[in-house]
Amino acid sequence: MSEKSIMIVNAVLNPNEKEAFTYYSEQSVPLFKEAGAIPIGKYKIAKTIIGSKKPQVVVIMEFPNSESIINVFESEIYKELLPFREKAFLELDVFIGK
């Protein structure tokens, strides 16, 4: 039996590319849901206490396992969204936690 995994996204949005972000979100969220994602939370970051990173938003989702997360990012459908992702975010980090 696979262990549940958490996807943690730290992001800084590009304020000049709101349309790219909207399109990316509208297209990527269903892919994550199809992979079994359960949203845990979406948080705006008010202040960085330790470290030099200043993410604007953190998104946390639970998945059935790590493979389900990786499969989304490696899918051909997701890869078609890469140009929109590149425009939508100034910084984007995605992590898998256990």
Rank of each mutant, 00 (worst) to 15 (best):
F89C: 08
P39G: 10
V59Y: 09
N71P: 02
E17V: 13
N16S: 15
G97P: 00
K53P: 00
S52P: 00
E26C: 02
F95M: 04
A20D: 13
V57R: 13
V72T: 07
I60S: 10
N14H: 07
F95G: 10
L82K: 13
E26L: 09
F73R: 08
K33I: 09
V29Y: 04
A37W: 05
F95N: 01
K4P: 14
I70Q: 13
V12F: 00
A35S: 11
Y23V: 06
V94M: 01
Y43E: 01
L92R: 15
G41D: 02
L13W: 09
F84I: 01
E86A: 10
G36P: 04
F32R: 12
K33Q: 08
S75E: 06
A46Y: 07
S25D: 03
E17S: 14
L82S: 14
D93N: 14
Y24S: 08
Y78M: 07
D93T: 12
K4L: 06
I8T: 14
P55L: 02
Y78F: 14
T48W: 08
I50K: 14
N71H: 04
S25I: 03
T22H: 10
S68T: 15
I77Y: 01
L92W: 09
E34L: 05
N65P: 06
E34F: 02
Q27H: 08
F73S: 09
A46C: 13
P15G: 11
I8L: 15
T48H: 11
Y23N: 03
I45W: 00
D93A: 13
A11C: 14
E76G: 03
D93P: 07
L31M: 07
G51D: 07
I70T: 13
L81A: 04
I96D: 03
E17F: 12
G41K: 04
F32V: 02
K18V: 13
P39T: 10
V57M: 12
A20Q: 09
Y24N: 09
I60W: 11
F73M: 08
K53G: 07
V57N: 11
S75I: 05
E67T: 00
F84A: 08
L31N: 08
F32Y: 13
L31A: 06
N10R: 15
E3Y: 02
S5H: 13
F95V: 02
M1H: 08
E3V: 09
R85A: 00
G51Q: 09
E80W: 00
L13F: 12
G41H: 00
V9K: 06
P64V: 15
I45R: 09
L81D: 03
F63C: 02
K79S: 03
S2Y: 06
K53C: 04
A35K: 01
